[in-house]
């Protein structure tokens, strides 16, 4: 964590580890919803029992996104799990396309 002015700056990556309770408080989500996401394979925490689960910081963003998608598209859990997976795939593909376009432009110029 880096102190910036009077605020704390955190990189939400896999170096940050959060418990179920911390995730629930920080996302404003019910613990049951997070547990459902684990059951559907969207989240894969370390640890055996829910009390021992440790989630990477990236899951915080994923849960917030899942909450928005569920609310705005009225998705059930299996639809939500599929949507999240496909969105990640699209993000990676868009990035690859942008890089290929960049290289093509370089070759042409």
């Amino acid at each position: 964590m880096v102190k910036h002015s009077q605020t704390t700056l955190e990189i939400l990556d896999d170096r940050l580890r959060l418990s179920l309770r911390e995730l629930s408080v920080q996302t404003g989500s019910h613990a049951e919803f997070i547990m459902d996401l684990v059951e559907y394979g969207v989240l894969q925490p370390e640890g055996g029992q829910p009390r021992e689960w440790r989630f990477p910081g990236t899951d915080l963003i994923l849960i917030k996104r899942a909450m928005r998608l569920r609310r705005d598209f009225d998705l059930n859990l299996s639809g939500l799990a599929l949507a999240l997976e496909l969105l990640e795939e699209i993000r990676m593909l868009r990035r690859t396309v942008a890089e290929l376009e960049e290289r093509q432009w370089d070759e042409e110029s």
């Binding site: 910036h4 009077q6 939400l12 990035r95």
Partner: peptide, 14 residues
């Protein structure tokens, strides 16, 4: 900070 990746998030509390 150094070492952030594409698509990563940074949180500034408050």
């Amino acid at each position: 900070p150094a070492g952030v990746g594409d698509g990563q998030h940074i949180r500034l509390r408050g």
